[in-house]
Amino acid sequence: MLDIQGLRKSFGGVVATDNVTMGIEAGELHAIIGPNGAGKTTLIAQLSGDLAPDAGHVLFGGKDITTVPTHRRSHFGLARSFQITSVFMGLSVIDNVALAVQAHDGHSFRFWQPATTQARLRKPALEVLEKVGLIDRAGSIASALSHGERRQLEIAMALATKPSFMLLDEPMAGMGVEESAAMVEILRSLKGEKTILLVEHDMDVVFALADRISVLVYGRIVATGKPEAIRQNADVRQAYLGEA
């Protein structure tokens, strides 16, 4: 579904993405793991369109989207969540999600009718909030949410754009044990329904959820395979899991 071909990105002398070639198949949950500074977020940013690669191509559903701007990629069915929580702090939770629904309900050059009374925006928003377990906070201002709740909202907004493919950048970052467990359940419910590229530090989560795992070290994919194969892979153990 998503094909990455020879992707390269460097910042000055640092090669953050070094000739990455990989494919993500429709319906799988593909995890990317790697130590800090391996270039995971840089890779995600190139897939979402926030960063332009120096070389290489990104194909989505067979179509070359390498130079397609971020906002148009979303309309191809590609959604992302951010590693650093990125919601609309001053708006209510439901407004946040309704804005995501609205993005895929025609153009927004509608200047007069109130948006906040439109059931066709609010109802899908509430349904998504229910799915991620945030419906009871629908009326709260986003800035009043706990960190874990904001992470849930982050996923809700990505979901509300009805994506076929989701780029999830460390959805569990900074979460407590209980919050993490809730997020795992959300991801499990999405599995099979959406194609997911998951970047995550929590190894238990990754090995429990992923269909396939790619290991990124210094911008390079050193291994790709099923969780069991990755666990056994000597290169990975040495380069990443820190065992000799």
Binding site: S86, F88, Q102, S108
Partner: peptide, 29 residues
């Protein structure tokens, strides 16, 4: 009042709050 509460207005306020997110959601900000 009408504009800022309309669909258009919500988009403009979203851009103020977090433009990167608006782009990721699919808006040509």
């Amino acid at each position: 009042y009408r504009i800022v509460n309309s669909r258009f207005g919500m988009v403009v306020r979203g851009c103020n709050s977090n433009e990167a997110r608006m782009k990721a959601l699919g808006y040509n900000t």
